[in-house]
């Protein structure tokens, strides 16, 4: 956790603001602790030795942020967060109107995930992997992609003609790559430029 130490003559809003500027974060997330009070000559003027740290709880604050977005969109939502592994956090969201929140090809879902990831990694030094799922969309999409991958790979192995899949985002391509990583007969490669990058399944030379 990032922290700084400095000396201040007074403790007020300006002190908090100074600490926020130094830590380069919003002042709502700054916590000040007085380490020591120093007295000057004749005990006339005193200075504080202050330690400023970032007050941020990954699970609590990120749920708050996400819930706030959804409230502002006038959607009733249930948000759950879970730390699955070291530096990996997943959010499961369920609302009354899931399709709006998912968007075309999961575009809005990705936007929410990007914002949340940026928000979390702004306040923590460790790099968190953030996954957001809305109404089981990602899980379902993953299953579909795996079926598509297996089906196409079988076809490629049989005909020995390479096959190009439709355009996909990084996460979806990754699902295909991992699914086919241990196949003997085919290799996978990504081609093209974002946002039109797509996976090509090629037969392996023997």
């Amino acid at each position: 956790m990032r922290s700084i130490r400095f000396e201040a003559k007074v403790m007020n809003d300006a002190t908090v603001k100074y600490a926020a500027d130094e830590l380069k974060i919003n002042k709502d997330f700054v916590e000040l602790n007085v380490i020591e009070e120093k007295f000057g000559l004749l005990r006339l003027n005193k200075t504080f030795v202050v330690e400023a740290t970032i007050k941020f709880d990954v699970v609590r604050d990120s749920i708050k942020y996400l819930q706030q977005i959804l409230d502002n969109m006038q959607l009733e939502a249930v948000v759950e967060a879970k730390i699955v592994a070291d530096h990996e956090i997943t959010f499961v969201v369920n609302t009354s109107e899931n399709p709006i929140l998912i968007g075309k090809n999961g575009k809005t879902l990705d936007a929410i995930q990007t914002l949340l990831k940026n928000f979390i990694n702004l306040f923590t030094d460790e790099h968190y992997v953030v996954l957001v799922d809305i109404g089981g969309y990602k899980e379902q999409r993953k299953k579909q992609l795996e079926i598509l991958a297996t089906k196409t790979a079988k076809e490629v192995a049989k005909t020995r003609v390479e096959a190009k899949l439709g355009k996909m985002n990084a996460y979806e391509r990754r699902v295909i790559h991992t699914k086919l990583a241990d196949w003997r007969d085919v290799t996978t490669e990504s081609e093209g430029e974002e946002p039109n990058r797509c996976v090509v399944i090629k037969p392996k030379n023997k």
């Binding site: 969109m73 006038q74 709006i100 575009k107 990705d110």
Partner: peptide, 15 residues
């Protein structure tokens, strides 16, 4: 980030 903010606002407005 700007595009993510736009996408979310767009979704809210599309309703």
């Amino acid at each position: 980030i700007a595009n993510a903010i736009r996408t979310i606002a767009y979704a809210a407005a599309s309703r």
